[in-house]
Design a protein around this nucleic acid. Structure first.
Lengths: 104, 104
DNA sequence: TCAACATATTAGATATTTCTAATATAATAA
DNA sequence: TTATTATATTAGAAATATCTAATATGTTGA
């Protein structure tokens, strides 16, 4: 019965459509982190990482709060991990398929 | 334990990050369709829709077979519907949040 | 107050996606 | 054959996303 706008839906997927943003989400799986702890674990510049965090925040995937001079980010909607698990299942199946087609 | 490449994962999300492609996926929820039945239900040109179908196929989201002069597309990995449901849950929660913050 | 730190914002260059229009290919029917 | 239908491919323009470098803002401690 759902008739959610496809634009809204695709916006969320698009926010997940970048390797650095997936990397950030995976980092946050264990719990909240300040930007200062995210930065050294991410393969991109400070300003770029900050921009990626903004993209994730705009789509409601992460949220942030201030703690003194630091900003602490955390996952806002945990569904995102189920989504990543589902994508990994799809990819594994694709890989299996490729293997078996090669051995024919 | 999963350590699937973030590039591979984000490629799948990126393929879902377009409203027309979500529209196509939703059309295929009821079952397979030839391109000729997809086209009239999609808000874009024939060649453009064909390109979107290619994007979905490249990421293993849909598959196709030939039937005479027609090409029949179907969903290859049904996980995609669970993913859409999860995104809709996220969006609904965001909307509720917006509402309640407005009424304060 | 001032210096140092933590993070965000901006502007512009570069890269990638998307779209349109035209054309190609393949199957079928006349 | 030839025309028609069904779909894919291509090229290039336009739109959007990404990255880098520079700068701005806010916080804290000396």
């Amino acid at each position: 019965m759902s008739n959610m706008g496809n634009q809204l839906i695709s916006n969320v997927f698009k926010a997940l459509g970048h390797p650095t943003r997936i990397q950030i989400i995976k980092l946050l799986r264990k719990g909240e982190l300040c930007v200062c702890d995210i930065l050294p674990n991410i393969d991109s510049e400070q300003s770029n990482t900050s921009q990626h965090l903004t993209v994730l925040k705009n789509q409601g995937i992460v949220e942030s709060r201030k703690d003194g001079s630091k900003v602490i980010y955390s996952i806002k909607n945990k569904e995102v991990y189920e989504m990543i698990d589902l994508v990994e299942a799809i990819i594994l199946r694709q890989i299996e398929e490729t293997k078996s087609s090669l051995s024919k």
